[in-house]
Design a binder for these strands. Structure first.
Length: 482
RNA sequence: GGCCCCGUCGCCAAGUGGUAAGGCAGAGGUCUGCAAAACCUUUAUCACCAGUUCGAAUCUGGUCGGGGCCUCCA
């Protein structure tokens, strides 16, 4: 089966056929850099990171472009509030964004252009639209005339008459139609600006994405993504600008990710339920955050809550414990690679069929859970190490799990180190130290040697009350957080 | 008001015409000096109503409930 994806433009799942066989051009709207990124940005970027990884895994040569919007009303306003220039502000938050994305384990896009470095492209595009009669200049502003573009609102499936009925022209704007939108804004005093045929000014919000995507991917390309909230007006306006200028279809597949809610409510600053990526990573491992996001389909809303994150951590722990056990056992076995192993191959096929179905990561993760259970089941069989065929299956499952996890950006850590890190992080919030636990373990070991099981159990019970579980094994006693 | 989405086991979450994946939590069991992990067994007819169909969680209509976009927003 080959990849199918849900296209916002047509409202259906479609087979994915790139414009040029074997190659994919993908543009994703990045962030406006005036503040730290929140969990919603994390989701959007992780979703498209997975799309990028999976397309590459499927054999496509992918050009992934994700922009920085570094000139904008909010940036100017924030810079003024802080008394610094807007370039300094945007550079600060570009660095912060890069650090956050790196911390979340995202791959770097092929190209990460900035709006301010493409002013010439933007001006050329605006001029082209004016020349074509699709846009008009008024006192240094330039507006796109929506009525000149018949397909306007085809993405968001709205009706222009209805929209106009409720639309208002803001004071200071000189639009012919309330729905017209700015391509170029005349500079106000103290604002960053560039010379243009219409006077000093700066680009409107939407035009930069049309200019930059065309610059790097051409006038028509395969995939354009972003959050659901960008469908209107941002992406609608991009289509209008680009198609009015080129006369060609702009984008073949539009992909939009769903929102993040916090404790069932929409996340917003006014509700005070706003979490930055930095806040979250203080508390949760980056892979846990990714695993959590993977656990739901990318178009569904997802509820960010402490309980859900803890469940995600539980789930990931199950994988890492299984991978750890398998690595240890396999290291002590003779692995006969000539023995045919079907489990790994079947797991891979199932995983791919889920991902091919509009990136159904929730289903794919379910299959990975099946894989780890099969692996554990085989390992728990009696005399497992002497059964060549079973060892070969476990070996295949182990490597397949690592490979497939890599496709969605999980299982990238060394299991023992990962488990240890989770343990120590949790211990930091408890009123017991690793040293104290080790002392108790030593005391219990002596009691066990003396066959004083009452005392041994008393130590176990005491630690358990304090949240520590002791684990006995042939190699000795270790511990974990209850 | 316009457009759109959702309502599946205690919780999270797949499934879009053939009779309900998976995870967490729960119960019982195997293993263990005791425990943990692991493994096995076990827990749903899909908000409600009416239709279409041999057959529907899945299609149509309606009701109730929740959410989003329509101004900046991932």
């Amino acid at each position: 089966m080959s990849l199918r994806l849900y296209n916002t433009l047509t409202g259906t799942k479609e087979p994915f056929t790139p414009l040029e066989p074997g190659k994919v051009g993908m543009y994703v709207c990045g962030v406006t850099v005036y503040d730290y990124c929140h969990i919603g940005h994390a989701r959007a970027n992780i979703v498209f990171d997975i799309v990028y990884r999976y397309l590459k895994y499927s054999g496509y040569d992918v050009t992934y472009v994700r922009n920085y919007t570094d000139v904008d009303d909010k940036i100017i306003q924030r810079a003024n509030e802080r008394g610094i220039n807007s370039t300094a502000l945007s550079e600060e938050f570009i660095r912060a964004f890069d650090a956050d994305m790196a911390a979340l384990g995202l791959e770097k896009p092929t190209i990460e252009p900035k709006a301010t470095e493409h002013i010439e492209d933007i001006i050329a595009l605006v001029q082209k639209l004016i020349d074509a009669g699709k846009a008009y200049a008024v006192d240094g502003d330039v507006y796109f005339a929506v009525q000149s573009f018949d397909d306007y609102l085809k993405l968001s499936k709205r009706n222009l008459d209805d929209m106009q009925a409720g639309a208002r022209i803001a004071p200071g704007e000189k639009k012919r139609n309330p729905m017209d939108f700015a391509l170029w804004k005349a500079a106000k005093p103290e604002e960053p600006s560039w010379p243009s045929p219409w006077g000093e000014g700066r680009p409107g919000w939407h035009i930069e994405c049309s200019a930059m995507s065309t610059r790097y991917l051409g006038e028509s390309f395969d995939i354009h993504g972003g959050g659901k909230d960008l469908v209107f007006p941002h992406h609608e306006n991009e289509i209008a600008q680009s198609e009015a200028a080129s006369g060609k279809p702009f984008v073949k597949y539009w992909i939009h990710n769903g929102f993040v809610n916090v404790n069932q409510e929409k996340m917003s600053k006014s509700l005070g339920n706003f979490f930055t990526i930095r806040d979250i990573l203080q508390q949760y491992d980056p892979e846990v955050v990714r695993f959590f996001i993977l656990s739901a389909h990318y178009r569904s809303p997802i509820d960010f809550s402490d309980q859900n994150l803890k469940e995600a951590r539980h789930g990931l722990t199950r994988f890492y414990e299984g991978l750890h056990a398998a690595a240890q056992v396999l290291a002590q076995c003779d692995i006969d690679t000539s023995v045919e192993a079907n489990e790994g191959r079947e797991l891979k096929e199932r995983f791919q069929s889920a991902m091919d179905d509009d990136f159904n990561t929730a289903q794919a993760i379910g299959f990975l859970f099946d894989g780890v259970r099969n692996m554990n089941r085989l390992m728990s069989e009696k005399k497992f190490r002497k059964k060549k065929d079973k060892v070969a299956e476990v070996n295949a499952l182990y490597h397949t799990l690592l490979e497939l996890g890599g496709v969605v950006g999980i299982f990238g850590s060394e299991p023992e180190a990962w488990l240890e890190r989770q343990k120590m992080a949790a211990l930091a919030d408890m009123d017991i130290s690793a040293e104290e636990i080790e002392e108790k373990i030593a005391a219990r070991l002596q009691a066990r040697r003396d066959k004083d099981f009452a005392r041994s159990d008393a130590i176990r019970d005491e630690l358990e009350e304090r949240g520590i579980l002791l684990l006995d094994s042939a190699e000795g006693t270790s511990w974990k957080i209850k």
